[in-house]
Structures are given as structure tokens and as C-alpha cells.
Computed example of a mutant assay.
Amino acid sequence: MRRSAIRISESYVVPEDQRRKLAQAVSVFGDEQPAPDEMGGWFDFADWRGRPVDQSYFLGRWTMLYFGYARCKGSCREAAPMMARAARELREAGIAARAAFVDIEVHPIAPPQPLRLAAKDHRHAYNWPMRMAQSDLYERHAGQLDVLSGNRAQLAQATMAYHVLREHTVPHRGEQGLSINHSSMIYLLGRDTFVAAYGYHDMGADALVSLVQDLSQAERQQVDFAAVKRRYLRGTCGGDIG
């Protein structure tokens, strides 16, 4: 059962009573978050195999996007299977959809290294646990969940654009090396790749499926894409997207 609030972009014409009902929450996570129209617009990633992923990968379908930590033992374990299930049910209902998990663990300065075999023993590259966790996350959901990542600059730009909070801390029980406290919003991207709505990791697959079905049929007000594009990544974190 959904426990947290869901916010819908003002560009979607939905009944106000429905908008208010979805915004009600039994559980509250942190301070009030920005409006959906103030989020998103950055798609410079790589998949867990290292292949580049850009905006074209998300166009033309509904995407459930989550920024988490592949080695996470908490909310990520709830969000990942829920998104994979929702995307599968939407596709079965004839709505193009995908689920994507972005691992926010920062890559080392050097590119990801392959497994290296020494003469006397087996040695893993220093980022091998992170890559193993990403691979495991992908395989655990039978390819129904896209597992994405990026270098330091890519992840910094993306987490800023989506207002993702993250903090490296000492490892929690069951984790090794480090832990990352992070916000746990699920961003629902429309077919145009802009954020249509967002909820939290506890919203449930049924709520996600219902929300996509409603928004896919809702009238959409015109969006000033040029203005939205200029809004992201300004100031100290870089210039406007070209």
C-alpha cells in the first residue's frame, strides 16, 4: 500500500482532487521536495557494462528512474523490484515502459578496470566490488531493470539535475567499505523524457502502474522546452546544456 506522497507535473491536466489525494502522505521523507517541473533533464550515463546511454535511450516510453546504491541493503532493495514489476506490467498492458536504476557510488578517477590475474594469486581491480554489485543487480531482475552509472562528473551533474541528496558514511550492517545515505525518490519520466511525477520507494508497483496509465491518457499542456533546458546545470556546476 502506498504510504508516501506523489507529486504530478503541473503540465498534466488531471483533476485537482486526484492531485491532492496523491499528495497526501502517511510517511514523510525529509523536507518538501521541488516540483517535478524543476527536476531532470540530464541523461549522460553508462550502463553497467560501460556502454554510453544518452537521452535517446529514454525517448518514446515511460521510464521509472531511481538513484540508489547497488550495494545498498535498505530502500534500494524495495525500489528496484517494484520498478521492474511495474515496467513489466505496463508493457504487458501495451504501454512502452522501462525501469532504470542509477548507481550513485562514485567511480574512481581512472576508468573501470577489468579483472586482473596476477602470477601468484587472483587480484581484483579496486572497483571490482562496485561492478559486481551492478552486475548482480541486473541479473537479479532478469534484465528487467536497466542498471546505469557514470563517472564523477556525470553523476554530479545528474544528481544535481534531479535534486538527489547523497552522503558517504560508515558502512551499515551487511555493507562493506562504505555506505551512502541518499534520497529515495522514484522519478516517472514521460515519453518526452521530462519528469511527469515522482513518489518514493514505498509507493508500490500498483500505484506506479495506475499513475502511468492515468497520465498517458491525460491532456498535456505545452511546455517551454527551451526554458526548461536552460534551467539545468547553470552556475558553478557548468553552463547551459548545448
Rank of each mutant, 00 (worst) to 15 (best):
1 M>N: 13
4 S>K: 02
6 I>P: 03
7 R>S: 10
8 I>K: 05
9 S>T: 00
9 S>H: 03
9 S>N: 12
15 P>C: 03
16 E>M: 08
17 D>T: 13
21 K>G: 06
22 L>Y: 13
24 Q>I: 01
24 Q>G: 03
25 A>G: 07
25 A>H: 06
26 V>S: 06
27 S>I: 14
27 S>R: 14
28 V>D: 07
30 G>N: 12
33 Q>I: 07
38 E>W: 07
39 M>K: 10
42 W>I: 06
44 D>N: 11
50 G>P: 01
51 R>P: 00
51 R>D: 12
52 P>W: 04
53 V>D: 01
54 D>A: 12
55 Q>A: 15
58 F>V: 08
61 R>D: 06
65 L>A: 02
65 L>W: 02
66 Y>A: 02
66 Y>P: 02
67 F>W: 06
68 G>A: 08
70 A>W: 08
70 A>H: 08
71 R>A: 15
71 R>N: 15
72 C>I: 10
73 K>C: 11
75 S>W: 09
77 R>D: 03
80 A>C: 03
81 P>Y: 00
83 M>T: 02
85 R>L: 12
85 R>C: 01
86 A>H: 05
86 A>D: 03
86 A>V: 05
87 A>Q: 04
88 R>W: 05
88 R>S: 14
89 E>Q: 13
90 L>H: 03
91 R>S: 05
93 A>S: 13
93 A>N: 04
95 I>F: 02
96 A>H: 07
98 R>H: 08
99 A>F: 09
101 F>D: 02
101 F>N: 03
105 E>L: 13
107 H>W: 15
110 A>F: 11
112 P>K: 09
112 P>S: 09
114 P>S: 03
118 A>G: 14
118 A>R: 14
119 A>N: 11
120 K>H: 13
122 H>Q: 09
125 A>E: 04
129 P>E: 11
130 M>E: 14
130 M>Y: 04
131 R>M: 11
137 L>V: 02
139 E>K: 04
139 E>L: 11
143 G>C: 05
143 G>V: 05
144 Q>L: 15
144 Q>W: 04
144 Q>Y: 07
151 N>H: 14
152 R>M: 13
153 A>G: 09
155 L>H: 07
159 T>Y: 00
160 M>I: 07
162 Y>D: 01
162 Y>M: 02
163 H>G: 09
163 H>T: 07
165 L>N: 14
165 L>F: 15
167 E>P: 01
167 E>K: 14
168 H>D: 15
169 T>C: 10
171 P>K: 05
172 H>L: 13
173 R>E: 15
176 Q>S: 12
176 Q>A: 14
177 G>R: 05
184 S>Q: 07
185 M>A: 15
185 M>H: 12
188 L>K: 11
190 G>E: 06
191 R>M: 06
192 D>W: 02
197 A>G: 10
199 G>I: 03
203 M>N: 11
204 G>I: 09
205 A>L: 07
211 L>A: 10
215 L>R: 12
217 Q>C: 12
217 Q>W: 08
218 A>W: 11
218 A>N: 11
219 E>F: 08
220 R>F: 12
223 V>A: 09
224 D>Q: 09
226 A>L: 14
228 V>S: 11
229 K>T: 09
231 R>C: 00
237 C>M: 08
237 C>W: 07
238 G>C: 05
240 D>F: 01
